[in-house]
Simulated assay, not measured.
Amino acid sequence: MEEHFVWVTTRRLRPGTLEEFEREWRPDPYPQGLRRAFAYWSEDGQEITGVSFWDSKEACDSWRNSEPETQRRAHMAPYVVEEREGFYFGRELSVPQR
């Protein structure tokens, strides 16, 4: 099975700011080494979790330390109450067919 390097970030947002947050959240330009990205948000729109898959830890670290990412985080900051992030290695799990 193929292993992945995954960066997971969960942010608690100020009430009613999900739409504004999402406009600032998308990176521009998109990072080199980013394979896939997903966003999941709570029913009340006050928590959003981003899951991104990278070619390597180095590619992710390079993006995290870049000027575009610094600017992106500054643009998101007015909407964020709390932020947690983590780096993980993993693989897709096989789910039995019924």
Rank of each mutant, 00 (worst) to 15 (best):
H4C: 02
P68Y: 03
H4D: 04
W54L: 05
Q97T: 08
R72G: 07
V81L: 14
E83G: 04
T10V: 13
R12N: 07
W41G: 05
C60A: 13
L18Y: 02
L13W: 00
P78D: 06
V6R: 04
F87Y: 15
R73C: 07
M1H: 09
F38W: 15
E47G: 01
E22N: 06
V51F: 05
V95N: 03
G90E: 12
E82N: 12
R35E: 10
V51P: 01
G33A: 05
P29S: 05
V6I: 15
F5M: 01
W7V: 12
S94H: 09
R26M: 12
F5K: 00
R14Q: 09
E85L: 14
E22G: 00
L34E: 00
P68L: 02
S56K: 05
T17V: 02
Y30E: 12
E24W: 05
S66I: 08
H75A: 15
W54E: 02
V8F: 04
A77G: 07
R84E: 15
D55N: 02
E69H: 15
S94V: 04
W7R: 14
L34F: 00
R91L: 12
E92G: 11
T17N: 00
V80C: 03
W54Q: 01
A77W: 05
V80F: 02
E43P: 00
A37H: 11
G90N: 13
R35C: 06
D55H: 04
D61Y: 12
E3Y: 08
W41E: 10
L34Q: 04
P96C: 05
S62V: 02
Y79Q: 03
W25K: 09
E22W: 00
S66E: 08
E22H: 03
S56N: 02
S94N: 02
P68A: 04
F5N: 01
Q97M: 10
Q32H: 01
E3W: 08
E85P: 06
A77N: 10
E47Q: 11
T17C: 06
D61I: 11
P29C: 06
Q71F: 12
E85G: 15
T70L: 14
P15I: 01
E19V: 13
G45Q: 06
T9I: 12
S42H: 09
A39C: 11
P31H: 05
E3D: 10
S62G: 07
Q46V: 06
R36T: 09
W41N: 11
F89H: 15
G50Q: 13
Q97K: 13
D55V: 04
P96D: 09
R35A: 09
G86Q: 11
S62M: 07
Y88C: 09
T70A: 15
R23S: 11
Y40D: 10
R12T: 06
R11T: 07
D55P: 01
S52C: 08
E69L: 09
S42P: 04
Y30A: 14
E22K: 05
V6W: 05
R91N: 10
L13H: 01
E69G: 07
